[in-house]
Amino acid sequence: MVMNNYRFQLGLKKVKSKGLLAKYTKYIIIGIVTGMANGLFGSGGGTIAVPAMVLLLDEEEHIAHATAISIILPLTVVSAYFYISNSYVDWSLTLKVILGGLLGGYLGAKLLNICPSHILRKIFAVFMIAAAVRMIF
């Protein structure tokens, strides 16, 4: 009985440590891929991290969204530092875009309550593909 119990506990420990290893492997993969995309393409971190957390870590979508921002913010600061220190920066262009973007972000959040985003998503995907083809060739 005691022996059985001991074996049972040992088994449990094994499962636990295996789970932890699997979890950390997922953290490493999600982190490296998200960070690489963020640094290399200056974008796309959220597009990778959100579905990765939902699919690999079983996280709820809205938690994954908020968590993704907390992950990408420090990565973006590091990436931006390298871009700026290599003088890949145009402050006047950046400022004008940010001014428009802040107003747009506010309007977008308001619009979200009026029209659903799932149809827009598909339309947007078509634009993404068209822009991609234009950029490749």
Binding site: Y27, G35, M36, A37, N38, G39, I71, L75, F82
Partner: peptide, 19 residues
């Protein structure tokens, strides 16, 4: 926190490659 720590490594290499 753990994902961001590994992410920083990725961001470092990603930015270096981009540059």
């Amino acid at each position: 926190i753990p994902v961001a720590v590994f992410g920083l490594v990725g961001a470092y290499f990603g930015s270096k490659i981009a540059i």
